[in-house]
Design a protein around this nucleic acid. Structure first.
Length: 407
RNA sequence: GUGGCCAUGGUGAAGCGGUUAACACUUACGACUGUGACUCGUACAUACGAGGGUUCGAUCCCCUCUGGCCACCCCA
């Protein structure tokens, strides 16, 4: 009989890897807490409409990648493809914006996109994200960017480099869009099918199309950064100024286009060359119109998310196994029934040799044999596994702890 | 959605028409019924992803299916 396997693109995280993940999550929590972020936990399933309205109907995510189904009550529900929409929904639903003018929230958990799996890309993948709402000053943009780069620093990763761009705002983007469409119209013939199709819906996509013909055709295309309105221009200049003064390295990528419609002004990606075509390790940007668009007040926002699988890939085979300080080998019923209350001990009546082998395999720093003689004497031989040296210690927690920490 | 590569035990893999399906690692137990690492011994695939076909005979050849990986697309 065929055994049941996991769904394609849905992976188990085995004990050999969970230590690495815990390190990533814990590092993120620490960094986020330092900058005043609190965790929010939102559901994994939302009404489909939430994502259509936030991410955008013409994006690839909404068009073809969502896990959407109808529940028994007839509502259309969707497994969340990203986290920002849910967090904003919660912000509005619980009126968090009224509790405090600025909200700093972070989240972590699985996201779902029905794509063909490959290295660094899965159907259930995990993101760690942070969002700031209620702050529009460029200093907050810079702080979010700085926080992301600090996070990667603390993870021990130098590789992903920061690229930034500005996508303008409703005041300046339409004019730019027109200029771009006009430019592209002249080069219709050399554009790929997708780019031609997207001209009416999302012409900016042509800028990061990888088809050689498109790359060439868009060489001299107008850049958004050169068409920013004065406000956006000042904002973007200020963000860059703050980054320079905070010594956060970055580069300008005027061709960077994000896959979600809600982005305005500052957008950014942390890219690496080490993951093949999955170059984006983290990405985000400002989304000043989103909360209002979802039925909330006109609250500005900025945030980002990182892909945990991709970060884990970059961190590679680093070992995060935890080794026990002490292993207790038990001999005889009295010791066995005393030992099982304290910690991991043998419950299957294995030989002392077998237990010692286990102590070695677990890389325990110390071991001690607990048997009838030790119980009678109230003391035993504590063995340092590294070199086999033994010393007699009293069988009390303080005595053993003292011997272990004292070396 | 499109394309490429690959499917032998817990793992890495040999075998390429007739073998006890090698070897290594891992795991378990043992070599003084109270002490690990090294060493040694024993055990661990009626089975080579599934189903058909060719053949006297198929893990090895052919077909189909399924699964995995990688790339394109897109993205975290």
């Amino acid at each position: 009989m065929m055994s049941i396997t996991a769904i394609k693109g849905f992976n188990d995280l085995l004990p050999s890897e969970s230590g690495l993940w815990q390190f990533i999550e814990q590092t993120a929590r620490q960094v986020f807490a330092r900058y005043g972020f609190n965790e929010i936990r939102v559901p994994i399933v939302e009404k489909t409409e939430l994502f259509c309205r936030s991410i955008g109907d013409t994006t690839d995510i909404v068009e073809k990648e969502m896990y959407t189904f109808t529940d028994k009550g007839g509502s259309s529900l969707t497994l969340r493809p990203e986290g920002t929409a849910s967090v904003m929904r919660a912000l509005i639903e619980h009126k968090l914006y009224a509790l405090d003018s600025v909200n700093k929230l972070y989240y972590m958990g699985p996201m779902f996109r029905h794509e063909r799996p490959q290295k660094g890309r899965y159907r259930q993948f995990h993101q760690i994200g942070a969002e700031v709402t209620g702050a529009s000053d460029p200093l907050i943009d810079a702080q979010v960017l700085l926080m992301v780069s600090r996070l990667f620093q603390e993870l021990g990763l130098a590789e992903p480099s920061l690229q930034i761009n500005s996508l303008g705002c409703p005041a300046c983007r339409p004019a730019y869009r027109e200029a771009l469409v006009a430019f592209l119209a002249e080069r219709q013939g050399s554009l790929c099918e997708d780019c031609r199709r997207r001209q009416g819906t999302n012409p900016l996509r042509a800028l990061d199309c990888k088809v050689p013909g498109c790359v060439e055709a868009t060489q001299g295309a107008p850049a958004m950064v050169e068409h920013l309105c004065p406000d956006c221009n000042d904002h973007f200049a200020a963000v860059q100024g703050y980054l320079v003064s905070a010594e956060v390295p970055f580069s300008l990528n005027p061709r960077m286009v994000r896959g979600l419609d809600y982005y305005t002004r500052t957008t950014f990606e942390l890219v690496t060359g080490l993951l093949g075509s999955q170059s984006a390790v983290a990405a985000g940007g400002r989304y000043d119109g989103l909360v209002e668009q979802l039925g909330g007040p006109a609250v500005p926002g900025i945030g980002f998310a990182l892909g945990v699988e991709r970060v884990a890939l970059l961190l590679g085979d680093r070992s995060f196994e935890r080794v026990p300080d002490l292993f207790i080998a038990v001999m005889g019923d009295a010791a066995r029934t005393a030992g099982f209350r304290l910690m991991e001990t043998d419950c299957e009546g294995k030989s002392l040799k077998s237990q010692m082998r286990r102590a070695d395999k677990l890389k325990a720093r110390y071991s001690i044999v607990l048997g009838d003689t030790e119980l009678a004497a109230g003391s035993g031989a504590l063995k340092r596994m590294e070199d086999g040296r033994q010393q007699t210690v009293a069988l009390i927690a303080e005595g053993i702890a003292g011997a272990i920490t004292g070396g």
